Amino acid sequence: MLKKVVMMLVLLTAILVIAACGNNNEEVDNTGAADNSNEEQNNNDQNADAEADDGDSIKIIAAHNQTDPENPYQDGLLAFKEAAESESGGSIEVEVHAGTLGTDEAELVESLQVGGADVVLVSPGFMSNTGIREIDLFALPYLFESYEHWEQTVDGEVGDEIAQIVQEESDDLFKMIGYWTAGVRHYYGKQPLESIDDLDGMTIRTQTSGVVADFWSQTGAVPTDVDWGELYQALQQNVVDSAENAYPYFVQQNHHETDNGRYTTETGHDYTTRFLLINNERFESFSEEHQEILLSAAEASVEAERQALYEQEDEYKQILLDDGGEVNEIDQTPFIEIAEPLQDEVAEEIGVTHLLEQIRDMR
């Protein structure tokens, strides 16, 4: 009997030992399986991240204030869109707004500041409202004597320095990515100008503050604020006597067909500069590759916009004449005699006398 009990105890002990060994082996196998599962998941996560980077895309809102689809601004931004989307293989999408984010340039600057737009086109006068006074240099009347003179300036050291100033004084909010032109501006109004004296007391739609307004005030005219989108009606209804702009811009808007826009006098007072700006905070958030593509697209836009404008200067002057508008020339000397002291005064005030001298030396 005792022998049977001992044998049963031995057998039970053996069974327990075997069972314990089986459990230990199962734990080891499960641990190995878990390690393999974790490794596989990590690899999957890394692959997913890589795929996300490869498929990363951005959307750029680009805007100008002109509503006519034939405007050179539109040509420039469409060239920007085409180059950015093509060079990025579609990972950059550009949405172009022609006047739909505002026909007032101040609205576009505000949109750029608050993130409603990523790329905008604005003039020096409206940009100076942000407190960056140095850019008033490019708003000075009779600063340039030809398109060649203008290009040499903005594409050279002067343009580089102004671009750096814009970025620094905006606390890195604005980045200059291109200089466009809006043509050479002339007077147009209810009567031709035979001499500067004809401007005395005449209301003219132009900027109502800054160096541009000071210039027109000194000619005897009265600077008057009218939104670009409302100017046709203002000229037609005698709200203002005159305005000033380049042929492609005011002829496309049919200003020459109004009672107060029929007569153009080629004052040639401004070879205009326009700033193509990008929100720098957003720009810096992009990958290096996307940044390079956007800068390349900006170069394409500069070339396209300038070419379109130069071709349209003569084209739209002829359209004006064909529509019954009248054009005359005028001695610009009295205008220049007002402009040059104003240039000196403003350049000293805003600390860019050295840049003014560089521009004059390039004539």
Results as ranks from 00 to 15, higher is better:
289 E>N: 02
138 F>G: 01
279 N>L: 12
7 M>W: 14
210 G>W: 06
167 Q>V: 03
72 P>R: 12
304 A>R: 06
303 E>W: 04
254 N>D: 15
314 D>F: 12
177 I>S: 00
30 N>T: 02
257 E>D: 08
31 T>I: 13
237 Q>F: 07
363 R>P: 00
254 N>P: 05
26 E>S: 11
169 E>R: 11
59 K>D: 14
66 Q>H: 09
280 N>E: 11
250 F>S: 05
169 E>L: 10
177 I>G: 04
176 M>I: 15
48 A>N: 13
181 T>N: 10
230 E>A: 15
193 L>H: 06
313 E>K: 07
25 N>H: 08
166 V>C: 03
295 L>Y: 06
170 S>V: 07
25 N>V: 11
287 S>R: 04
208 T>G: 05
166 V>R: 00
192 P>L: 09
29 D>V: 15
192 P>Y: 09
145 E>W: 01
272 T>L: 05
218 Q>V: 01
255 H>P: 00
105 E>L: 11
194 E>R: 03
322 D>T: 10
211 V>M: 05
309 L>S: 01
144 F>H: 15
269 H>G: 06
263 Y>C: 09
322 D>Y: 02
334 P>R: 10
224 T>D: 10
141 P>F: 04
357 E>A: 13
292 E>W: 01
143 L>P: 02
10 V>K: 14
121 L>R: 04
200 D>P: 00
280 N>C: 07
104 D>I: 07
1 M>C: 02
281 E>C: 05
33 A>C: 00
175 K>F: 12
339 A>H: 03
356 L>S: 08
113 Q>K: 13
105 E>C: 05
263 Y>H: 13
103 T>F: 01
231 L>Q: 15
350 I>A: 07
32 G>V: 06
115 G>Y: 04
242 S>W: 04
97 H>T: 00
357 E>Q: 14
324 G>K: 02
160 D>L: 08
290 H>V: 02
58 I>E: 09
273 T>K: 01
345 E>R: 11
215 F>D: 07
291 Q>M: 09
276 L>C: 01
262 R>D: 06
272 T>P: 05
149 H>M: 02
66 Q>F: 10
357 E>C: 02
16 L>F: 13
135 I>N: 07
318 Q>V: 04
343 Q>T: 06
207 Q>F: 11
95 E>V: 15
34 A>I: 12
166 V>Q: 03
208 T>D: 06
138 F>N: 02
14 A>I: 14
347 A>S: 15
53 D>H: 01
54 D>C: 07
43 N>Q: 13
336 I>T: 14
11 L>S: 10
203 T>S: 15
145 E>V: 13
333 T>N: 07
144 F>M: 11
85 E>A: 10
69 P>I: 14
246 A>Q: 03
316 Y>K: 09
62 A>T: 04
126 F>K: 09
271 Y>M: 01
334 P>I: 12
249 Y>L: 11
202 M>W: 01
141 P>M: 08
155 D>T: 13
127 M>T: 12
203 T>A: 05
107 E>S: 14
344 D>Q: 14
335 F>I: 09
67 T>K: 10
280 N>V: 05
162 I>R: 03
16 L>Y: 04
91 S>M: 04
167 Q>H: 09
355 L>E: 10
115 G>P: 03
191 Q>W: 06
285 S>Q: 11
180 W>N: 08
128 S>F: 08
66 Q>R: 12
198 D>W: 11
231 L>R: 08
324 G>V: 03
241 D>N: 14
252 Q>G: 13
233 Q>D: 15
55 G>P: 05
225 D>P: 01
66 Q>N: 13
192 P>R: 09
89 G>M: 07
